[in-house]
Lab assay of single mutants.
Amino acid sequence: TETAWISLVTALHLVLGLNAVLGLLLLRWQF
């Protein structure tokens, strides 16, 4: 079960990281 939790947490971190990068790019394009 630990491996499943680790994979789930890493997936969440990757998604949050991608969202942060996309958000910064969108803000930079708007201004």
Rank of each mutant, 00 (worst) to 15 (best):
V15Y: 01
N19A: 10
E2C: 00
L24D: 07
T3C: 01
E2P: 02
R28I: 12
W5T: 00
A4I: 01
I6Y: 02
V21G: 06
S7G: 14
V15N: 00
L22N: 05
W29D: 05
L24G: 11
L26E: 09
S7P: 07
R28P: 04
T10V: 13
G23C: 15
L14E: 09
L24H: 08
G17V: 14
L22T: 00
L27P: 08
W5G: 03
H13N: 14
L27V: 09
W5C: 04
H13M: 11
L26R: 08
L25N: 02
A4M: 03
L8A: 09
L24S: 04
V9K: 00
A11G: 09
G17E: 10
H13Y: 15
V21E: 09
E2W: 06
A4F: 04
L25K: 00
L25R: 06
V9S: 03
G17S: 08
L27C: 13
G17K: 03
L24V: 11
V15M: 13
L24F: 14
L18W: 08
L24I: 12
A20M: 12
L24C: 13
L16T: 06
L18M: 14
V9C: 00
L18P: 08
A4W: 11
A20H: 01
V9A: 00
S7E: 06
G17C: 14
L12G: 08
F31S: 13
N19L: 02
I6C: 03
L18E: 08
T3E: 03
E2L: 05
W29A: 15
A20C: 13
L27Y: 03
L25P: 10
W5Q: 00
Q30D: 02
W29C: 11
L12E: 07
H13L: 09
V21R: 04
V15P: 01
L24E: 02
G23T: 15
V15H: 09
S7C: 14
A4E: 14
L26K: 09
L18C: 09
A4K: 06
S7M: 13
L12K: 06
L22C: 12
T10F: 07
V21L: 12
L22H: 00
L12Q: 10
L12R: 06
V21S: 04
L16D: 09
A4L: 09
L18K: 02
W5L: 04
A4S: 09
V21H: 02
L25C: 15
L18V: 12
L25Q: 10
V21W: 03
I6E: 00
L27I: 11
I6Q: 05
L26A: 08
H13R: 08
L14R: 06
T10C: 11
T3Y: 01
L24Q: 07
L16A: 11
T10P: 02
W5D: 01
G23Y: 04
V15K: 01
F31V: 12
G23I: 15
V21D: 04
E2F: 01
E2S: 02
H13S: 15
H13I: 15
I6P: 01
A4Q: 00
L26Y: 11
Q30M: 15
L27A: 05
E2K: 04
A11N: 00
G17P: 02
L27G: 03
